[in-house]
Amino acid sequence: MADLQDDLHPAAEVGRVDEPAPPYPEEAVAVPPEAPGPVSDPDDAPLTRARAVLAAHPVADGYSGLPRALRQLPWYDLDLGESALDADLPRLRKGRVGAVFWSLHLPPGHDGDRAVGATLEQLDLAKAVVAAHDESLSPARTASETADARNRGRVAVLFGPAGAAALGDSLSVLRSLHTLGLRVLTLTDAGWAGPAGLTRFGEEVVREMNRAGVIADLSYASTPTIRCVLTASKAPVLFSRSAAHALRPHPANLPDELLADVGRAKGLCMVPLTAEQAGPTVRDVADHLDHIRALAGAECVGLSGTYDTGSAHPQELGDTSCYPRLIAELLRRGWDEPEVALLTWGNVQRVLRGADFTAHAAQQRRPPSTATIADLDG
């Protein structure tokens, strides 16, 4: 039993798994910034500069619904462009997207063994799409693989988040999904991660996620669950789709006190580009980014396109080609290039490195857990 209660630590220690990120990513940049052309209108200058910054520090997009969207289409062409989608290869390139997390979330009504099977089907489809477009897309799990894909001119695709129901309450399934490529798991809609927080089995799930290298996603999680995971996890956590509740009340948006906790824990809050959560204009999205940067720190805020999920997007941010417009708005507001580099690329790299560092250390200390939900919560 002592093994199952393995050294928890306060939230303030979570950030220690990784050294503070430098203002720029450490990896070599293979694509030089674009040379600015003639500027006829002063208002165009921030957009020209935004494109140059993104050429060196592309967007790591925290959430895309593309796999599920593709499943619903009888035919598609990602190479030439697909009007039925928010993202295709030409628009990803135009938007300077260097990495993207492909969601494996399921529609309502999937639970138990059905959820496990449906998640495996989504993962299989996602991997097949990447393999079929291997001159433009590359599967990635680690920070180094993500940077390598970017430096070869490909978009790195990371698989996840998946829903907690995909585990079927089994740590063996968790490890198997990770072996197949799963990188992020959302801790909601499970009996062991609910309104009251984590149960004993839920704490063991978090420890095993740390050991395997699966990152915890806490968007839509209850406040008790968020606080429990910030305390229990030794790896950085992320919020794949959360903005500032003070600016836009929404169940997934975080109140200021939790944003401060995320900053202390060196987590990552990824602001979704949806009108429902962030507001109807690009300026509204920038307001959320300013607010979270002020409370949690520039190293704890990121971007989540949330494209191809059926959500309405703010004006000027209708698809993945529009990221330069958002970056231009931030540059107008006084964000400097190191801060933008963290927002678009460096912060995701830090979280990936932190998860891998924690996994390596945990695997030296303890074997795979054999605990079951009946053992701990029965």
Rank of each mutant, 00 (worst) to 15 (best):
V229G: 07
L167K: 00
E82A: 01
R183C: 12
L330F: 08
L167M: 00
D3Y: 15
G378I: 00
R154S: 06
L158D: 11
G346D: 12
A196S: 14
A374M: 11
A147G: 10
A30E: 10
V29S: 11
A260Y: 10
P368A: 08
H57T: 12
W335Y: 15
P42F: 06
P255V: 05
Y323W: 14
A30T: 07
S83D: 14
L171N: 08
H360Y: 13
R325I: 14
H57F: 14
L89K: 02
G98P: 02
R68S: 13
V205M: 07
Q122S: 15
Q5D: 14
V59C: 06
R227F: 11
A118L: 07
P367N: 08
A359E: 04
A35F: 09
P236S: 01
L123V: 05
E121S: 02
R283W: 13
A260E: 13
I226Q: 06
Y220T: 07
D377L: 01
E203F: 11
V340G: 06
D261H: 07
L254A: 09
A298G: 05
V157P: 03
H288G: 01
R51F: 09
V205C: 04
Y220A: 14
P324T: 08
R91C: 04
L185M: 08
D336V: 09
L158N: 03
L8Y: 11
G197P: 01
V348N: 09
G378L: 02
E204H: 00
S40T: 14
G346H: 10
G191E: 15
D6K: 08
R154G: 08
R227D: 14
P324F: 13
R68M: 14
L4K: 10
S103P: 03
E135P: 03
A296H: 04
P280W: 15
F101C: 12
T306L: 14
L238Y: 06
R353T: 09
N210V: 00
P20A: 06
I226K: 02
P224T: 09
G302R: 00
A341Y: 06
L180G: 04
H250E: 06
W75M: 12
L331P: 02
R366M: 11
T320N: 07
A165M: 12
Y24L: 13
S321N: 01
N210S: 11
L85V: 09
P36G: 13
H288C: 00
L352C: 03
D375V: 01
T370I: 03
T146L: 04
D134A: 12
E316L: 15
D88I: 02
D287C: 00
L187V: 04
G354E: 10
L120Q: 13
E82K: 00
D261E: 13
N210Y: 02
P46N: 01
D189P: 01
R366E: 15
G346C: 04
P272L: 09
S40G: 14
Y63K: 02
V59F: 08
N253M: 08
A275P: 06
S219C: 02
Q315P: 00
A355K: 01
A166W: 08
A371K: 03
Y307S: 01
Q277R: 01
